[in-house]
Design a protein around this nucleic acid. Sequence first.
RNA 1: GCCCCGGUAGCCCAAUCGGCAGAGGCAACGGUCUCAAACACCGUCCAGUGUGGGUUCGAGUCCCACCCGGGGCACCA
Length: 836
Amino acid sequence: MSERDEQEHYDVHAVEAKWLPVWEKLDPFRADDASPREKRYALTMFTYPSGDLHMGHAEVTALHDVIARYWWQRGYEVMNPIGWDSFGLPAENAAIRNDEHPATYTYANIETQAESFRRYACSFDWSRRLHTSDPEYYRWTQWLFLRFRERGLAYRKNSPVNWCPNDQTVLANEQVVDGRCERCGAEVTRRELTQWYFKITDYAQRLLDDMAQLEGRWPERVLTLQRNWIGRSEGAHVDFELHLASGERRTVTVYTTRPDTLYGATFMVIAADADLAAEVVAPERREAFEAYREQVRKESDIDRLATGKAKTGVDLGVTATNPVNGERVPVWAADYVLADYGTGAIMAVPAHDQRDLDFAREFGLAVRTVVAVPNAEGGVDDPEQTYVATTGDGSYVNSASGDGFRLDGLSDKATAIHRIVERLEADGKGAGAVNYRLRDWLLSRQRFWGAPIPVVHCETCGEVAVPDEQLPVELPDLKGADLKPKGVSPLAAAEDWVNVACPKCGGAALRDTDTMDTFVDSSWYFLRYCSPGKDDGPFDPDQVRTWMPADIYVGGVEHAVLHLLYARFFTKVLHDMGMVDFVEPFAVQLNQGVVINQGKKMSKSLGNGVSLGDQLAAYGVDAVRLTLVFAGPPEDNIDWADLSPAGSLRFLHRAWRLAGDVTAPIGADPSPGDAMLRKVTHRTVHDAAGLVEGHRFNVMVARVMELVNATRKAIDSGCGPADPAVREAAEAVAVLLSLVAPYTAEEMWERLGHEPTVAKAGWPAVDDALLVEDSVTAVVQVQGKVRARLDVSPTISEADLESVAMGDEAVQRALAGKQVRKVVVRAPRLVNVVVG
RNA sequence: GCCCCGGUAGCCCAAUCGGCAGAGGCAACGGUCUCAAACACCGUCCAGUGUGGGUUCGAGUCCCACCCGGGGCACCA
């Protein structure tokens, strides 16, 4: 190898090995709570410890790190913590397979991932590291649960729940996707169980209202998803009088969004699995009803929602009185009405609701049009004939009460709704009402590897909270086969653990054997980071005030209605408890896309997985990071097959070579240097800041590439390597590159004669005078066609530009013999002459 | 069925306000270097912006309809 070759060889792995220990020693990213500098909190969704890091981790942390490192360069005190969401099923399943404790798998993987993160050179503050499965952490998860319970926000109820037969545990609504378990894909069934819930529905309206603060700062997509999930609807409660077989009367309230169609209600439907249905069914219909209810209970959501499935139901043999016209209508039970939405009972208006119409057709029930909705030809179709319910606006018909009250003649939905609600309220037969699709958050799980619910069940005292001073309620030492799912929590089998003295009366009592959904753990970890060692509370309110709300939260969009909704809910409750002084935890959010390969999600079965470890071995950390950041806008999915880590490496090499070519001495005054290059440098540094702040990292990288090209050109065929502008440019490249490629940047920095670390070198000062262009190209168009380009001053006046343009020879030629109708001048860039 | 996001060169992507469609990269091709190759370097090629209308002096950008791709919601009364 010649001397030149040796000098020019850039060994990425040697560079990585060289700088890691140096940074370890410098510990440059430890956030100082007491720093006088302005604080920034850079948060990234913490990791689940299954195996080693993969491409997805590499992408999200690379993007996130650009922001965190940028803030350091800009002089902020940055908190960029890291932790692990370390409770959960995969560890438990692995433990059963391998006959070991879930902690073994969990903490081994955490160590592996931590080591990978270090090598990946993220600017994490390792001193704040936390794991949700540590007793020091889940102690406070339990403490928070008890505070929620004291406020009536954690309660137990018996109700039909989503059950995953594979994982042998209940699931929250949010964890059921298309009728399947979000985690394992098994078809979810229903079970009637007593379970713990968080009363998130109490916060439905605030979860909606506070989104105003997030508008423009969170991805619109996430806000829309949350809005849909909360599902606010406006309508009315209407009371129907039920005439039971016994002669008894009973008031049943229905919820409807179309109270204006009340006169068209020709029957009523109660959810088959609602208690109400069983209570009111006539004796001669009971047998048929019980059989139907059994059938409904066995049905999974997938069966129930199967497209094209005919409506089913059973006549309950009772009637109900319509409150506005006194009409007696039959009452049915059916599965298309849901027990846990609204009141579990509806008034059916088949003419104006497709589901009701389908049901009416199936069972030969009456259809009455009360809104004459014009069709495309201007006529009015009869839903009974067309089988299409009409839901639009129209004029009201058949809508009058005996006492003269009527909707007939109205043609406006809003007015009709207003009128009928007014009438119902006056009669005490109903009222305007708001409903939400959101259900309470089912938080108990029948699995082992989670935070035990800190409640004791005592025969005499009932449900008793474990006193705070006895927290944490630690998990018993179970492993292997002990953890096999049996339909009840494995904790139930740990007799020594389950049997305790009641904290209240001292008598025999049993611990609650369920554990908490791991989304409870992750609903407050971002607060814990602010004071991770605190042992007399979940977090230090003063430190939280210092750092929160997080200035950026980077993570996957898959948590739009899970983690993000739960964390917002927790924050609002903590606000109401006086523990935090804000209601939204994450000021700005960035969702990264997914890394796919060859057009498809990476998967073992497709054999298209790309190993992060292999890529790092082949191209090094910097090239992989650069590739991911440069691939496209951060929120877009990126296809690894479209990318070129080899190209990234080539670029890094080119940048690195610049540092070796610089011969101007360190500290040289750049002002006498090459003005052209200086302008490029200052323009690039200036623009890069805006691009990072706008999360347009791919464009920022492109601009750095331009600067590298310009510097190369200056060295080879311009001002030469000794010009101080070349040093200035190379130093700027090093600092800009430090956001994406920390090893290369550090190596450049050293070659340029500086001490480590470039990560704290500071953002280069921009000289505004160098941002001003001497001249710009003005385009002169005639009828939209470019006829001339003129070099003009950027501050030229519209009048001057027009006269220069009109005086141009080529323009004159184009205008020859034509009538100038109008001249549009946009100084200094454009003149358009319109002829006519 | 409803709601969001996207469609620019062979590919990934740029294009503050509506103002010359191209910043950057990949691939390809040509050249320099080399005994040769790889690497590196220099250079070249390439689209009128999914389709059809509209507004405008001027549309990738705004409006309407449609097509394609991706995502979400969906028996929620």
